Computed example of a mutant assay.
Amino acid sequence: MRPARALIDLQALRHNYQLARSASGSKALAVVKADAYGHGALPCAQALAAEADGFAVACIEEALELRYGAIAKPILLLEGFFEAAELELIDQHELWCVVHSLWQVEAIERARLRRPLTVWLKLDSGMHRVGLSPADYQAAYRRLQACGQVGKIVLMSHFARADELDCPRTAEQLALFNAAREGLAGEISLRNSPAILGWPQVVSAEPASDWVRPGIMLYGATPFGEPQALAAQLQPVMTLESKIISVRELTAGEPVGYAGNFVTERPSRVGVVAMGYADGYPRHAPTGTPVSIDGQSGRLIGRVSMDMLCVDLTDLPAAGLGSRVELWGKQVLASEVAARAQTIPYQLFCNLRRVPRVYCGR
């Protein structure tokens, strides 16, 4: 069997969820959209089911996977519904729903539901992706309140630049949100992972009644480009690993891999690892990207191939055929690999494919 695999530490997942709740003082929706950022939505939800206040997914297909997997906790559809016909399934499975457009308000007004909906009314406070405009926000709230189809309304928005700790945009968005919701009753949800970790000032008068939405921090990766005290307490959940399947002894001046963009400067030992961009490892990770080989620091050399990549074994004489290689995880942080490949940990995790996931810490 090919040795590439992703180890998923469910105890680390629970630790990170508890950190989000304790740091925020609020209720927390565990964000498990996009297959839990590549970690497996249902196993992750099952691991958190006893303690999570609820879950958040992108769409109804993701929500139904959890419901069919016996997840009974509240599930929020972060993108709401895409057509009015979905309201029947939302009603049937008791899902919570983001409303971000006036056509959705109109669809709810026309619907005939068996039970009142829980709606999360989203304001566009400056992200300019989805959300009601400040001019429409109060009227939409009052229409939903009056239509008889809605039992509870949570007031929400989304920060565009909370991962930039010195950026004034987050404070500007918060001020706009507070102005738009003036006079409206309801719980509040503003904080995603970077806001939970880096913006403690983003709280309401009653934070314990509000909701946070931890996403990337659940999986143990920092959303920041620089060190941050609370993010340093996160525990990596995924360890991507494989083994060395071949060792080459090369003289100085020999090219390694496609395009020969790495050339040995001295007599070298090169290890070939069963891992490539078809598994989700970033093709553009350059020479020097860190790896761990049998627990020792190592580096990637040459261009990443579809199924294989090469590492430098020259200074690791004990390493060889069968040596374990960690591509990211507890010894090599995904954020370090992402920075070298000029991407973000979110993409590394979500791009994972073909590699079997092995769960521990149940």
Rank of each mutant, 00 (worst) to 15 (best):
A231D: 04
A252N: 01
A162Q: 10
P194L: 00
L230P: 02
A221C: 15
A179D: 14
R191K: 15
A232R: 12
R191T: 05
A171W: 09
M217Y: 06
M238P: 00
S189M: 11
Q145R: 14
T239F: 03
G198E: 01
G253K: 02
A208I: 07
V212C: 15
M156R: 07
A146Q: 11
E226H: 13
M238N: 05
P200N: 11
Q233S: 13
V237C: 09
A171Y: 03
L240W: 05
V212D: 02
G253Y: 01
Q173E: 15
S193P: 05
E241C: 11
Q233H: 12
K152Y: 07
A146F: 03
A162F: 04
Q228L: 09
F159C: 10
V247H: 02
L240D: 03
E164S: 11
I153D: 00
S209T: 13
L218I: 11
V237T: 10
G148Q: 04
P194C: 01
W199M: 00
F159L: 13
G186C: 10
E226R: 13
H158Y: 13
D166F: 06
Q201P: 00
E249A: 04
G148I: 03
R213S: 11
G186E: 06
P223M: 08
M217H: 07
K152I: 04
A162S: 15
I216P: 00
Q228I: 05
D210K: 10
G215E: 01
L230I: 08
Q149Y: 02
V212A: 04
L155T: 05
A175N: 10
A195R: 03
S189Q: 06
K243A: 15
L165S: 11
L197K: 03
T170Y: 08
A175I: 08
G225E: 03
R213V: 14
A146T: 01
A231I: 00
A229Q: 13
E187D: 14
C167V: 06
T251W: 00
A171Q: 15
G253W: 01
P236L: 10
L218S: 09
T170I: 10
